[in-house]
Amino acid sequence: MNRTISALKEWLNPDWARHRSVPPFEAGLRPNRRLDEGTALLPEAEFEPDDVVIRDNGEVVFSSGDGIFTLADGVVTRVATLGGQVGTLLVAEDRMIAAVDGVGLVTIDADGAATDLCTDAELAACVTDLTLLPDGIVLATIGSRAVPDWSAALVADDRSGRIVRVDGSRAEVVAEGLGWPGGIENSGAGEVLVSLGFDHRVERRAVTALAKAGTAVGTNLPVYPGRIATCTDGWWVAAPYARNRFTELLLDEPELLREMTATIRQDQWFVPRLRCPDPYTDTLQLGQLRVHGVIKPWAPARSYGLAFRIDQRGRIAEGVHSRADSDRHGVTGVASRDGRIVVAARGFRNLIEPQKDKER
Rank of each mutant, 00 (worst) to 15 (best):
R3A: 06
S6T: 02
K9V: 03
P14S: 10
P14R: 09
D15G: 00
A17C: 03
A17S: 14
A17R: 10
H19E: 10
S21F: 13
F25A: 05
F25L: 14
R30V: 09
D36M: 00
L41N: 03
L41K: 05
E44S: 13
D50T: 12
V52P: 00
V52I: 11
G58Y: 10
D66P: 04
D66K: 13
T70G: 08
V75R: 11
L82T: 12
V91G: 01
E93N: 13
M96D: 12
A98H: 05
D101T: 07
L105K: 01
D109W: 01
D109T: 02
D111C: 00
A113R: 14
D120W: 01
E122T: 05
L123P: 04
D129V: 04
L132A: 09
L133Q: 09
P134K: 04
D135F: 08
I137G: 01
L139Y: 05
I142G: 02
R145L: 12
V147D: 08
D149R: 05
L154I: 03
D157R: 13
E172L: 10
E176V: 08
E185M: 07
N186G: 01
G188V: 02
A189H: 12
G190R: 05
E191V: 02
L193E: 06
V194L: 14
H200S: 11
V202G: 01
E203G: 08
R205G: 05
A206L: 12
T208G: 12
G214N: 10
V223T: 07
V223C: 10
G226R: 03
T232M: 03
P240Y: 14
R245L: 07
R245V: 05
F246H: 01
L249T: 08
L251T: 09
E253K: 14
E259H: 11
T261V: 14
D267F: 03
R275W: 10
P277Q: 04
L284D: 14
G293H: 00
G293N: 08
P297Y: 12
W298T: 15
P300A: 07
L306Y: 02
I310G: 09
R315A: 15
R315C: 01
G319H: 02
G319N: 06
R337H: 10
R340H: 07
I341L: 15
I341C: 02
V342R: 02
V343C: 06
R349K: 15
N350C: 11
I352N: 13
I352P: 06
Q355M: 15
K358D: 14
E359S: 14
R360H: 06
